[in-house]
Design a protein around this nucleic acid. Sequence first.
DNA 1: TTGTACGGGACAAAAAAGGTCTTATTGGAG
DNA 2: CTCCAATAAGACCTTTTTTGTCCCGTACAA
Lengths: 134, 134
Amino acid sequence: MLQISRKGDYAIRGMVYLASQPVDKVSLLSDIAAKMEVPQTFLAKIFQQFNKSGLVKSYRGAGGGFKLGRPAENISLLEIVETVEGPIVPNRCIMAAGICSRDISCTVHPVWKEVQKSMREILSSVTLKHLAGR
Amino acid sequence: MLQISRKGDYAIRGMVYLASQPVDKVSLLSDIAAKMEVPQTFLAKIFQQFNKSGLVKSYRGAGGGFKLGRPAENISLLEIVETVEGPIVPNRCIMAAGICSRDISCTVHPVWKEVQKSMREILSSVTLKHLAGR
DNA sequence: TTGTACGGGACAAAAAAGGTCTTATTGGAG
DNA sequence: CTCCAATAAGACCTTTTTTGTCCCGTACAA
Ligand code: SF4
Ligand code: SF4
């Protein structure tokens, strides 16, 4: 449908929340989920991914929670989206050469490449710093 | 998944085929499907939509088939895609105000608006004339 | 050692994608 | 006027993806 999934949107919401907290503050998942209106168990899964990729750092046990893995200005929207949704590819044939047998001669192929480039440029130019409501 | 569906890609293939034929030539669905490597019955559905929207003109019975409903230079990729996939909306909240209750204060919302604008600009600037293999 | 909070995996309902099948309808040619 | 060619329309179907939930394990602090 050429549209981001809820997972992607929820992921961004969660990260924006963390970015809007005091630096190094550890936030409870339940707080993040409530404030950003995201199903908590779903967000848990998303943050597990982020923890593995290093985008967030998690702490278990009492007093545990999540905080950003890096300064907000070093985390782009593109990285968040691609971590949960996979690479931004507006059409199958952009993923890799040969996936569509027609790609070599196809006149439409370059257009999708341009769309991809443009999207990546926009998303990579926006960081959590920009998004954190002040 | 932020990706065009096969339906959308097939739709484009079919239209590019028509655009690369002599003007006013009526092409058989079976020929289009074979040449462009698209499941014929699926393409039939797509072209029915196009016929209703006026993007193609169909002729039934012996000697029937399809041709473009307008000159190739007046049909953009954007129009083709939006006819089969619906409006280009990179996130739900772009469809209409109020779909996401957070849209008014959301700092991410404007970014998706920009993504939408950029995609629509690229796709509307490409016409079937540009895509028809010479 | 107990309660809190995240980690990981299995599970599942609902929606969307990707087609197929059958039965009209229409129009041309004999 | 009758057959055949070709699209129209709609019902139907299967597979994949999305959108979550549940349960149990593990870590950690008081
Ligand atoms: S745009 Fe061209 S190359 Fe890409 S999937 Fe479609 S036909 Fe293949
Ligand atoms: S980007 Fe903001 S407004 Fe749009 S759906 Fe996400 S939270 Fe809502």
